[in-house]
Every structure is written in structure tokens, then in C-alpha cells.
Amino acid sequence: MPIQFLETILLMTIVTYGARVLPFLLFKGKNVHGFVRDFIELVPIALLAALVIPELVTPKGSIVVIHNPYLWAGLLTFLFARFVPNLFMGIVFGMSVFWGLDKFLH
């Protein structure tokens, strides 16, 4: 196994496990407040936007609308998940729709 891969896993583990375990070790039951709390609270939703929207809108590095299976599969998956709140079904739906559109739009 390449050493670079082990280093990557080590670093990922440190930051991820660190975020999980520090409150267990340091907090007595108090909570964070103010700007820091709002900031951390908003990171997940901002992250979802940053992870998803650019991939849907600019899959190949420039903005595409019509011939873009990512965009349409994304919209359909969003609508599907609003009505069928099931993780497994949603993912299978998204993958299948994307596969179909990818064939159809090319």
C-alpha cells in the first residue's frame, strides 16, 4: 500500500475523529453559543449546496442546461425525495434516472 494513501487516511481520521471525540472529552454538558454555533450550524447546508449545485450546473467545467443529465436527474431526485423519504429508494431512483438520461441525452 502506498505510504501516501496511509498518510491520507491518517490525516482524515485525525480531523474527522477529532471533531467527533473532542466534545466527549472536553464538554461537561455546556453548549457553544453565538457566532461560532451559528457558523458550525450553517456549514452542513452550505456544504450540501457547494457539493451539489456546481456538479449539476457545470458538470464538464462550463454551464450546461439542456443536454445535461446531471441537472435533470438532480431535479427529479430532489422531487422524488420530497415525496418518498427513504434513503435507499432515493439513491436507487437517482442512479437509475441518471443512467437513463445519460443514455437518452447523448
Binding site: 451539489v52 430532489f78 432515493g90 439513491i91 437517482g94 441518471f98 443512467w99
Partner: peptide, 12 residues
């Protein structure tokens, strides 16, 4: 599309 689907479902 699997990961994007997961994120989109989390978004909803």
C-alpha cells in the same frame, strides 16, 4: 450519480 443523489436527499 450515487453520491450526488445522497446529498440531494440530505438536502430535502
Amino acid at each position: 450519480f450515487a453520491l450526488l443523489a445522497l446529498f440531494i436527499i440530505l438536502t430535502t
